[in-house]
Design a protein around this nucleic acid. Structure first.
Length: 610
RNA sequence: CGGGGCGUGGCGCAGUUUGGUAGCGCGCUGCGUUCGGGACGCAGAGGCCGCAGGUUCGAAUCCUGUCGCCCCGACCA
């Protein structure tokens, strides 16, 4: 019999099963307490908490190491993990916080299939677009299916069938579901897996204004979720990428191990993914600058902007860097200042290209007549040029001459070349001025734990999900989608909350609030008192584990630190002789001696502050 | 997908160069001593050396193929 995790009811099967279950329940309520939907609180001698002394060789980042060592996860395949009981408890807490915040904004939970028929994806066009990241499979009749990496198709088709009128909206529907992506390179344990747990909510609105309302609700909900999870995070503006859509924010947990680079303002609230980040546009061309005559200079062996600048004794910022890119439809030249880099995502968006990569030597030669390093905009023909606005503000600059070993000096935009497009295509770096307030931008690494997204009518149009407005006019539903990586959030929490001894769980998502440790398993008085405290704490709602193993105290302390219980209650000799127990806070290391009679009350007071 | 590395008891590793039938630490089992930060002693259990071929009297070791895993890069709702 398999019970789903959210199912608190027990299906009635046979009489004997019922009897057994009832017996267990009676036993459980008499000795052990229940919480969280029927989970009995347990003693470590009865629990599966396989801690490891040594770090498995496969782990690189701290969350992965600690999840393995502390007995939270085990690998089934690359990027695929079993969540052991401790992890499952953490996941349930995160999910419950998510549920509460979604429901608070009017979200309704549903559950969609993991297995999705190819037809849905053919209809949206993504069956062929999605590529090898989509886990595909066939049934016995050779029909195509996939494991859902996301659920826009399923939900949009559902709503196409159910929504007829503007009166039926808005709708905010969400699920918490396992998702599948056949990542090229799964890595960092739970951070980038091939199977992962995600909350996804989809909003359905009658128009953009209503979508804005839904979007704001989700922004608020996400802020609440990550605050409640005890995470340090930042919502950042992001590139809308392949899904399309107009506006999107990512919620980034700040951590060194993060895979995303973000830029944020030190003064105002501006923050953006580096893919999207902009900075204060450079000052316009100084009209008093005299434009000098174009001249060719010999620059043997000087290819990079730095080399050329050094060779000619000028600043790298005076060089025009020309990069040749190959897209799915054309070859283009991208111009940025020598001390800048091209932001390929911005460039791709500007060009409306599906793919973009640096052109090879042969393509560069063919398009420009020069080799990489000596390419420049002057005299470049039959190839589109995209210039960053900064380039247009340069005067008497240096650029490649489109022939070997030579550059032009005194190059002036508009006079010597005229790009087809002038767009922001540069990669912003720390130190540049904020686009909003001009204060200095800083750079940080982040783990993307959530993203909210205005989809608009992209899916409703292709899938024909329409409704009638108050004028009886048929319109496509305006959609948004909003994801939270639940399993990734667990990993991110550890990245942000750990020390050399192990995990330091924020109390709101800790698998248990406290552990009670009798110092000596042989001392009956200690064991009895520890058991009593354990029961009383649980009765007052403090989720407590009793470490009743006959291990030496050091072993139990080490495990407690590793697992990261926010509170540790040690019942030792003093408890019996002086009537005090030791309450230790994992995060601060603070230890207090508290009279036995007050412990339960004190801990109940302490817990909400952790 | 490109580059690099690794598969040897549950975990961490040595042994591979120079073929001779597998070893160390941790963990595990039993007994004893210990008992406030991963104890000690004694006695044990546990491995077709990723898999499949091949070379050889003999393969963890050499050759071929294959599978898996990790790291860097590219990529990424």
């Amino acid at each position: 019999m398999v019970l789903s995790e959210n199912d608190n009811t027990i299906p009635i099967l046979t009489f004997s099963v019922i009897i057994r279950i009832e017996k267990l329940r009676l036993m459980a309520t008499s000795i052990i307490l229940h919480n969280q939907g029927g989970h009995p609180i347990m003693r470590t001698t009865e629990m599966l908490i396989p801690t490891l002394r040594e770090v498995p060789a496969e782990a690189e980042v701290v969350s992965h190491k600690l999840l393995l060592r502390a007995g939270f996860i085990r690998k089934a395949a690359s990027g695929v993990y079993t969540y052991l009981p401790l992890a499952q408890r953490v996941l349930r807490k995160i999910k419950n916080i998510v549920r509460e915040e979604m429901d608070k904004q009017g979200g309704q939970e549903l559950l969609m299939p993991i297995i999705q028929p190819a037809e849905m994806w053919l209809e949206s066009g993504r069956w062929h677009v999605y590529g090898p990241e989509l886990f595909r499979l066939k049934d016995r009749h050779n029909r195509d299916f996939c494991l859902g990496p996301t659920h826009e198709e399923v939900i949009t088709l559902l709503m196409r069938g159910e929504v007829r009128s503007y009166k039926q909206m808005p709708q905010l529907l969400y699920q918490i579901q396992n998702k599948f992506r056949d990542e090229r390179r799964p890595r960092f344990g739970l951070m980038r897996g091939r199977e992962f747990i995600m909350k996804d909510l989809y909003s359905f609105d009658r128009d953009e204004a209503a979508l804005d309302v839904s979007y704001k609700k989700m922004h608020e909900a996400y802020t609440n979720v990550f605050n409640r999870c005890g995470l340090q995070f930042r919502p950042v503006e992001a590139d809308s990428g392949a899904i399309g859509g107009s506006s999107t924010h990512e919620f980034m947990v700040l951590a060194e191990s993060g895979e995303a680079a973000i830029l944020y303002c030190t003064k105002c609230d501006y923050a953006a993914n580096v893919e999207k980040a902009t900075s204060q546009p450079a000052a316009g061309l100084d009209p008093t600058t005299q434009q000098l005559a174009l001249k060719e200079v010999s620059t043997p062996g000087q290819k990079s902007a730095d080399q050329v600048a050094a060779f000619l004794s000028m600043a790298t910022g005076q060089i025009i860097k020309t990069m040749i890119y190959q897209t799915d439809k054309e070859i283009v030249a991208a111009l940025v200042r020598g001390d800048r880099d091209v932001n390929e995502i911005k460039l791709q968006n500007v060009l409306g290209a599906l793919t973009l990569e640096l052109a090879g030597d042969a393509a560069i030669q063919q398009a420009t007549g020069a080799v990489a390093g000596y390419v420049g905009p002057v005299g470049l023909k039959n190839i589109r040029m995209v210039a960053d606005p900064e380039v247009m503000a340069m005067a008497n600059a240096v650029a490649g001459a489109n022939k070997a070993e030579a550059h032009f000096a005194n190059v002036n935009p508009n006079r010597d070349f005229k790009p087809e497009l002038v767009e922001d295509i540069r990669l912003v770096r720390a130190g540049e001025p904020c686009p909003k307030c001009q204060a200095e931008l800083q750079e940080a690494k982040g783990i993307e734990v959530g993203q909210i997204f205005k989809l608009g009518t992209k899916y409703s149009e292709t899938l024909g999900a329409t409704f009638l407005d108050e004028n009886g006019k048929e319109k496509p539903i305006v959609m948004g989608c909003y994801g939270i990586g639940v399993s990734r959030t667990m990993a991110a929490a550890i990245e942000q909350n750990n020390d050399e001894n192990g995990i330091i769980w924020p109390a709101a998502i800790a698998p248990f609030h406290a552990v009670v440790i009798p110092v000596s398993a042989k001392d009956e008085n200690q064991v009895k008192l520890a058991g009593k405290l354990y029961q009383e704490l649980n009765q007052t709602g403090v989720e407590t584990v009793l470490d009743d193993r006959t291990e030496r105290p050091g072993v139990k302390f080490k495990d407690a630190d590793l697992i990261g219980y926010p509170l540790r209650i040690v019942v030792g000799g003093k408890a019996i002789e002086e009537g005090v127990v030791e309450v230790h806070q994992r995060r601060t290391g603070k230890t207090e001696l508290i009279p036995v009679a007050q412990v339960v009350e004190q801990i109940n007071k302490l817990l909400p502050t952790l």
